[in-house]
Design a protein around this nucleic acid. Structure first.
Lengths: 228, 228
DNA sequence: GTCTATACACAGATAGAC
DNA sequence: GTCTATCTGTGTATAGAC
């Protein structure tokens, strides 16, 4: 699988994003006509991600969101009851779509090595396709109240577990060396996150997402196969 | 070198931090008595880092900073002319102290392997000793205006260059394999940053800073020495 | 040097016309 | 469903007493 191939799978899901947001938040959205809701949610979310990823969610005023999205302040509040609710919608939607695609992609019928590759590629390609969402989720959870941060931490650990489980199994099957699988899984996550957190750096150096995928996979393999 | 040893070196510098802040910002600080300035700057900066690292600098109100630092609003503005200036003071101080210690620590008389170790350990230990500063600098540069972000990006590349130069030299000396040294340096940075960005995770798992240093070093070595 | 009290701008949110 | 106009709280910053 490379990025081009991944995009085909992803595009099927993509159109459902706003349908899903609608059905989850049906009761808090005052507007009735489905078509209108979907069209406007898309405008609102895109604008919110754009401004937030530049200045931070906190610093984004409702006035600027109104201007960027093309809807008036009054209209915005027909889609959520407070700025904080908008934040929650964005966060939840990100984690939903992420785990959904992950679940679908990682087939259990492959050996540990192939599954590790798939997991790394899936995560990386997904973050590339949905970069504004990933960046937003990473940066904005840090400034949230304790309780909601806990949720984000669980989500981090859960996605890390996908990697550590695969490595553990590889160790059991004697394919990999028994060598700090938990730290290794954490390292994979950190490297994957670097891709969307410092996109500017990789763009400047003209590193493609496929190149970066290959690099991470090689780096990790050299460690889990290390003879010493 | 381990963390205990590093702390001894660090402690010598530590006391100079506020002296240095004072001398750099002498003209924008209205208070004359040196002792007073140093004592209060410490209070202000500690409070600012504490609140910002929990809620973000933007979300920290001057009222809350006043309360946390124990100084009145009026008093605060004797030390900086605007909230933005406070932000600048914090940022600049962080990058100053970082490059200062780095320069001092990395001796050129060692071979590439030993220098790579020292560089990794120095960066990691420094971020551990000054965690609130590092966390702050990482999170808050993202929301800054273009021009200032450029500065932060240059700083990222500069510190990355320390690692890539060492690796390049190792390749030249035929100690290391010629294997994407730029991406490798970036990976080292990402792994080092993960330590202070997700401190909660490592604390929970009871990973010591020395353990983590050894892990990164092993991971990277297995790649730069990889036989294939 | 530090305080309290206050100015003034702008934030989030809503009411009511269309 | 969407708009404009407006309410009310909170933000940064400063003036002037001590």
């Amino acid at each position: 699988m490379d990025f081009v191939e991944f995009r085909k799978i992803y595009n099927i899901y993509k159109d459902e994003i706003y349908n899903e947001i609608l059905s989850i938040n049906r009761n808090s959205i005052r507007v009735k006509k489905e078509q209108t809701v979907i069209k406007n949610l898309e405008k609102i979310f895109e604008a919110a991600l754009k401004i937030s990823n530049r200045k931070g969610f906190q610093a984004m005023s409702m006035r600027s969101l109104s201007k960027e999205s093309g809807l008036s302040m009054g209209a915005l509040y027909a889609y959520f009851s407070s700025k904080e609710e908008l934040l929650e919608m964005l966060q939840r939607q990100h984690s939903n779509i992420m785990f959904r695609i992950f679940e679908y992609q990682i087939k259990p019928d492959l050996d540990a090595q192939a599954r590790l590759n798939t997991a790394i590629r899936t995560h990386l390609y997904l973050s590339e396709a949905m970069r504004p969402w990933f960046y937003f989720a990473y940066m904005e959870t840090k400034n949230m109240p304790r309780i909601k941060q806990e949720r984000a931490m669980e989500s981090e650990l859960l996605s890390e577990k996908i990697f550590s489980d695969i490595i553990k199994e590889g160790i059991k099957q004697k394919i990999f060396i028994n060598n700090r699988y938990e730290l290794t899984a954490g390292a994979i996550k950190a490297l994957l996150q670097d891709w969307y957190l410092k996109r500017w750096k990789y763009s400047r150096r003209k590193i493609s997402v496929d190149e970066y995928a290959a690099f991470i996979i090689n780096l990790i393999k050299s460690y889990v196969f290390k003879p010493n």
